[in-house]
């Protein structure tokens, strides 16, 4: 066998081994797909759930209030706020407003960056009395805006409050403690809870299935002994098994990681109303699934192959 033909022969032997025992191959692929699917779906859910939960918790109300007792609130540039997508002006309140006002528009220059729902009906569910900057009081006189409720990304809350307090003299900037503290606590607990449960599950999956694969490959000592007795080098046998394990992990892992990502996407879509497409699923979650499948396959394969290479071919094949 020439050096150039060795890889082709090795590949042929690997494919033959996989084809020869279809049941065993299918079981190994299924197991590795499960490992990859579970890992990728849980990794993605862990990565996205805090952001999704944060959006849900925003329904509990604004976390920053800007108040001006005397002159009304001044305009301020959008640049003072950290990130357009993470800040939502939920509404304003007019000092002389007799009843909630429908219609109108927020007149800050950057108001166009606001999502539609911040300017329409949903904001009223947050318990704010009015939600337009220029309002008309019940007697027809223009009302002065004295209160703006803001929804600031909790991670940038401190810095944003500092900026607003520094740049808006005469305006009182209050953090709504019940909202800010509860939200931070709920998100921390939720993140830790899902992470703990996921780690336990992935570990169970990994340990349990690597031992299953280990038992499966241990049963193939005879094959190794036969190869050795026919003159195969130990490195060749190792390479053949590594190819087989790699092929199984790649096929099972890729299929599982893609299926798991789809399931995770569906859970977030149905559960947390995620509007992202499947293509928005984090790529690293798919990679994590594939890596988990490779790891479990390797963990299940290394020990049997090493043990099999130490055996005496004659005693393993005795009577064959």
């Amino acid at each position: 066998m020439s050096a150039a033909r060795r890889p082709a022969a090795g590949t042929w032997l690997t494919l033959a081994a996989l084809r020869r025992s279809r049941g065993r191959t299918a079981w190994a692929v299924l197991v590795l797909a499960l490992v990859a699917g579970l890992t990728s779906s849980l990794a993605g859910v862990n990565g996205l759930i805090r952001e999704r939960a944060r959006r849900e918790l925003s329904r509990f109300g604004p976390n920053v209030m800007l108040r001006s007792a005397d002159a009304g609130l001044p305009d301020f540039p959008r640049e003072w706020l950290p990130d357009a997508t993470r800040l939502q002006a939920l509404g304003v309140e007019a000092a002389a407003l007799a009843a909630p006002v429908e219609g109108g528009a927020i007149t800050w220059p950057w108001a166009g960056a606001l999502p539609d729902w911040a300017r329409s009906g949903e904001a009223s569910a947050l318990g704010l009395e009015g939600r337009i900057r220029e309002a008309t009081a019940s007697d027809g006189t223009p009302a002065r805006v004295v209160l703006v409720a803001l929804r600031v990304d909790p991670r940038r809350l401190g810095a944003t409050v500092d900026t607003l307090a520094r740049e808006l003299p005469g305006v009182r900037v209050d953090v709504v403690r019940a909202v800010a503290l509860t939200e931070s606590r709920v998100l921390d607990r939720l993140g830790a809870f899902v992470l703990a449960a996921s780690v336990v599950l992935i570990l169970l999956c990994g340990v349990s299935f690597s031992s299953t694969l280990l038992a499966q490959w241990m049963a193939r000592r005879g094959e190794v002994a036969l190869m050795l007795s026919l003159g195969a080098r130990r490195s060749t046998v190792t390479r053949l098994f590594a190819q087989e394990i790699g092929a199984l992990a790649l096929v099972g892992g890729l299929a599982g990681a893609l299926a798991g990502s789809l399931i995770g996407w569906l859970v977030l879509r149905r559960g947390f109303a995620w509007d992202g497409s499947p293509w928005d699923w984090p790529w690293w979650a798919v990679v994590a699934g594939l890596a988990a499948a490779l790891l479990v396959a390797a963990a299940g394969g290394v020990v049997p192959v090493r043990r099999a290479l130490r055996i005496q071919a004659a005693s393993a094949l005795g009577g064959e």
Binding site: A53, R59, G271
Partner: peptide, 17 residues
């Protein structure tokens, strides 16, 4: 309403686990 909405959504993740 906000609590009911949030708890309902949480159920989906707990069901997955």
């Amino acid at each position: 309403e906000a609590e009911s909405e949030y708890r309902g959504r949480l159920e989906a993740v707990l069901a997955l686990l």
